[in-house]
C-alpha cells in the first residue's frame, strides 16, 4: 500500500471491514457509527461490509471485538487512504 507516512496505531483512518453474515443497521451505533452494507453473493452467502472513519486502532479493535462477541466471522480488514489527509 502506498502511504506517504508510515501509519501509527493512533492515526485517524478509514477502514473497511467485511464479515460473514447479516448485521442489522441498528448496531451501527455500537460499532462507532460505521455504515453497514449487507450484500448477498450469487451462491447465497451473505456478507456485511462496515465502512467508516475510526479515530485510532483502539477504536478499530473495539469494533472487531464487538463483531467477535456477535459471532460474526471476520473475513477482511482494509485500511483505506482518506482523500485530502496527510
Amino acid at each position: 500500500m502506498d502511504l506517504p507516512i508510515p501509519p501509527s496505531i493512533d492515526d485517524l483512518a478509514a477502514y473497511q471491514i467485511t464479515v460473514l453474515g447479516s448485521l442489522s443497521l441498528r448496531w451501527s451505533e455500537r460499532l462507532e457509527g460505521m455504515t453497514i452494507l449487507t450484500t448477498s453473493l450469487n451462491d447465497g452467502v451473505t456478507l456485511s461490509i462496515l465502512s467508516g472513519i475510526l479515530t485510532d486502532q483502539a477504536a478499530l479493535i473495539g469494533v472487531l471485538n464487538t463483531l467477535y462477541e456477535f459471532h460474526l466471522p471476520l473475513l477482511t480488514v482494509i485500511r483505506l487512504p482518506i482523500a485530502g489527509m496527510k
Binding site: 496505531i9 493512533d10 451505533e29 455500537r30 462507532e32 457509527g33 479515530t55 485510532d56 483502539a58 477504536a59 478499530l60 479493535i61 473495539g62 469494533v63 471485538n65 464487538t66 462477541e69
Partner: peptide, 25 residues
C-alpha cells in the same frame, strides 16, 4: 480505562456531548 473501545454506544454519547476521550495520541 480500557485497551480498546468498549462495546457501548459511544457515537451517540459523543453527539450528546456527554463523552470525553483521552486516547493514545
Amino acid at each position: 480505562l480500557s485497551r480498546f473501545n468498549p462495546p457501548l454506544p459511544l457515537s451517540s454519547l459523543r453527539a450528546k456531548g456527554l463523552l470525553t476521550e483521552i486516547r493514545s495520541r
